[in-house]
């Protein structure tokens, strides 16, 4: 699970940092000489960090959502219009003058595309699986359409929550759809 590995990585890095800081702190208690000007010759340390982060970047960037399923034709397109504090989802285009939606069913194991826009302020369009885990998201911005492609491999009920603060009922702005 993505979130778990993120948390693990974070704890690992935090652990290292804590150990190093503690060790260094206590080393000052039984001190000998130390260095006169600490701002000297730390360049290699910097290079190592650049190297590590460089690898990290080149591994992760190709996994960015913008490139997901880019060459494929989606099996289904779902139009999403977010408005304070409702999501309209429809397989037909949504007319902002009289927006309406209908229950959505999507095929499993096929690429689907969400075309997400907003009719008023910025909103978020975040898809949660049945266990309440965030699996993917995009923003809903007025005047623009964001195209989010995703392949659901588990049938079931999915929830959509608003993940961009949009006002007083932001926390209850939600909808759902099924994948079978």
């Amino acid at each position: 699970m993505h979130q778990n590995s993120i948390l693990l990585l974070f704890f690992f890095l935090m652990g290292i940092a804590l150990i190093v800081f503690t060790y260094i702190f206590f080393s000052s208690k039984k001190a000998d000489q130390g260095m006169s000007n600490p701002l000297k010759k730390r360049f290699w340390f910097f290079l190592i960090l650049v190297f590590i982060l460089g690898i990290f970047a080149s591994v992760t960037i190709p996994n960015s959502p913008y490139f997901a399923h880019a060459g494929e034709t989606p099996a289904k397109v779902v139009h999403v219009a977010a408005a304070q504090f409702i999501f309209y989802m429809s397989e037909q285009a949504i007319d902002p003058a009289k927006p309406s939606g209908h229950p959505i069913e999507l095929p499993a194991n096929e690429v689907v595309e969400f075309r997400v826009t907003s009719l008023d302020v910025n909103h978020g369009f975040a898809i949660y699986d049945e266990t309440g885990r965030l699996i993917t998201q995009t923003q809903a911005m007025p005047g623009y359409v964001n195209r989010l492609r995703y392949k659901f491999d588990q049938p079931g009920k999915y929830h959509v929550l608003c993940l961009e603060y949009c006002g007083i009922a932001h926390q209850i702005m939600r909808t759902s759809f099924t994948v079978n």
Partner: peptide, 14 residues
């Protein structure tokens, strides 16, 4: 206002 025409272009895509 006049988004409606643009929305017509979305019908039956894919």
């Amino acid at each position: 206002q006049s988004f409606s025409d643009a929305m017509k272009e979305e019908i039956n895509i894919y």
